[in-house]
Design a protein around this nucleic acid. Sequence first.
DNA 1: CACGCAGATGCAACTAGTTGCATCTAAACT
DNA 2: AGTTTAGATGCAACTAGTTGCATCTGCGTG
Lengths: 162, 162
Amino acid sequence: MAQHHNHPHGSEGLTSSVLADRLRRAGQRVTPQRLVILGALLPSGHLAADEVFARVEGQLPGVNRSTVYRTLDLFSELGLVSVTDLGGGARQYELLDQPHHHLICHRCGEAIEMDDALIEPMREAIRARYGFAPQVDHLALFGFCIECQHAPPARDGADDVE
Amino acid sequence: MAQHHNHPHGSEGLTSSVLADRLRRAGQRVTPQRLVILGALLPSGHLAADEVFARVEGQLPGVNRSTVYRTLDLFSELGLVSVTDLGGGARQYELLDQPHHHLICHRCGEAIEMDDALIEPMREAIRARYGFAPQVDHLALFGFCIECQHAPPARDGADDVE
DNA sequence: CACGCAGATGCAACTAGTTGCATCTAAACT
DNA sequence: AGTTTAGATGCAACTAGTTGCATCTGCGTG
């Protein structure tokens, strides 16, 4: 019900120029393609690579799909965007501001938003134990929601669960 | 009884018939394809869908790739196998016995094996807070390993890391 | 402000994964 | 055993994502 029009973990404070700076500081080149792709991600929440491509092509005809993929990949490695498989066929890309996470029900498909505080201890523990610095900004954990936990493992017949 | 002699998180104790039972108990049909696919996963660790397909086809000529995908998908939902994107192009499927996890370096690609104990608290917290039962048996977390943490974000030029 | 070149892009062919539909079959019920 | 049917499979066309290579360009250097 409560559809948040201002998405709760958006990127309100970010602008293209700030992002260009982040690119430059990371030792990466600032190209028109990269700026437009970044711009395409600014307004909304999750976007599939194809949706990004569509927006980008509108602004910069001739860009190639592989450039979009490669750039999204780069941004993900730079920690600028998160890549998440929400189980809906295509991975979802999102400009990263506030870390947030999803719990996705294998049975009914419901996605619950999860507080980052719940994974912070794990981050710490990993850092302490392995010296590894995890970038866990957008986790998708699959499992069963409270309603489906005791229901039979139906898949798309989707009996009377609602 | 030794827990594991060969691979550290294998499925030594499992046999086809046990797995067939698990299928049946879950209200799923037991078909030759499913048994062969299960069997293909028995011996080794990670397997890409395509490798599974190759093995299956050897035993049961005529099986279709989509059957393999659909079946692996089903098994994952039943909690029989884990699906993990290790960043190497194709997702890795593995018969699930001991939960285990990987820390993968964005820069050098190294994969560290992570103790399940580090994520158990998160599981608990999620259960307690949301009533959601997460199935986190094979997590892949990306980030930077201790060596690469202070190195420049090079990708495949792979300059002289020390 | 021209030059050089590491690195970014475009292109095309490829691999990986998904889906709608017709047919077939496991298993429930006579 | 024979019948029935929900659900599994095969097929084919499709979407999603990757990669090698030739060309182009951002940006550091003189």
